[in-house]
Simulated assay, not measured.
Amino acid sequence: MTEDDARSWIALRHGPVGITAMERIADLVAEENARQNLVAPSTLSMMWTRHLVDSAQLLQFADADSAAGPWIDIGSGAGFPGLVIAALTRRTVYLVEPRRKRAAFLEEAAERVGVADRVRVVAAPIQSLSGVVASVISARAVAPLTDLFAWAAACSSIRTQWILPKGQSAREDVATACETWHGVFHVEHSVTDAKSLIVLASKVARR
């Protein structure tokens, strides 16, 4: 997928409003990247493919009946995928980012993108979040599945969907997780890179 392809992908699914929102996020990340290393500098020229569409594609895996519940994004960093999800939907999204400078960026970015009313930035590890049960949990190459499931146990239920971009190691990660966790697991290919894989998990519970 080229950068032009990625823009067209967003335009087809989210229209001019989606394009404008993604442009704002791209500009904010590029601007902030000069102050702190949000993303690898080598990926700035591939922002639409490597970060924006790579995040936006996760929406197709979320069940429609989960739309009313919160989406929790673990290790949001530069806002991928959580800030993109918030910008393209009407969901309440929790951006969990323990690094203070990045959390501060996410708060400012949510304001400037116009989604601060629905975005909650949690400047702490996911283990500290309580009182919220997610309909969807995402985490973009943050940690092994076994760790993610354990860390977010207080924020998930048997009905929570897990949508987890994992690169090329997805199947191995699922096999390891199945030693200690029950669940329904499925692996999908990313639209931006056929070698990159996304783990979909549901009905997750400890063995």
Score class of each variant (00 low, 15 high):
P144E: 06
A154F: 08
T146R: 06
A67D: 15
V142W: 04
A11H: 11
R102P: 00
V136W: 14
F61H: 13
D63K: 15
P16V: 14
L38V: 08
L12F: 04
A134N: 09
G183N: 10
I19G: 02
G15R: 00
R120H: 12
A134K: 09
R7P: 01
A26E: 10
V174M: 01
V17I: 12
R91P: 01
D63V: 04
D73C: 06
D117G: 06
V17D: 13
L148Q: 05
T192C: 12
P165T: 11
E172R: 11
T49K: 15
L145E: 05
V187C: 05
R91C: 05
I74N: 03
S45V: 15
A40H: 12
V96Y: 04
A21N: 09
P125H: 13
T160K: 08
P16H: 04
F149E: 02
D27N: 14
D117T: 12
D4V: 15
S190I: 12
F61K: 04
L145V: 03
P98M: 08
Q127D: 10
I72L: 15
R13F: 01
A154G: 10
G15W: 00
S169G: 13
W162F: 14
L95E: 01
D147Y: 13
R120C: 04
S76C: 09
S190V: 12
A67P: 07
A139G: 11
E188N: 10
Q60A: 11
S45M: 09
L58F: 09
R207Y: 09
M47K: 07
T49W: 02
V113Y: 11
R159L: 05
L164N: 06
G15D: 00
A68M: 13
D5V: 01
N37G: 05
E31Y: 09
E111M: 12
D27M: 13
I74A: 05
E108M: 14
A103Q: 09
V199D: 01
P125N: 03
A104P: 00
V187S: 01
A201P: 07
S128L: 13
L83K: 04
L145R: 05
R50E: 01
A205D: 09
V199R: 03
I158L: 14
S196A: 14
P41F: 02
R171K: 12
D4M: 10
V187W: 04
R13A: 03
A116G: 04
A143L: 11
D63G: 13
R207N: 12
E3G: 06
H186D: 14
A143M: 14
E32V: 00
T49F: 02
I72W: 08
V199G: 01
V39W: 02
I158Y: 13
P41R: 11
W9S: 03
V199F: 09
F61A: 03
G183E: 07
L58H: 10
E172A: 15
G114C: 03
G75V: 09
S196V: 07
W48Q: 06
A152C: 12
S190Q: 10
K203E: 14
R50C: 00
V17R: 15
A177R: 06
S128K: 15
I137Y: 02
F149D: 00
D173C: 01
P70A: 07
A62F: 12
E31T: 14
R99K: 14
T2I: 08
R91N: 06
L148I: 11
D173H: 05
A11C: 03
H182T: 02
S76V: 12
M22R: 08
R100P: 00
W48V: 11
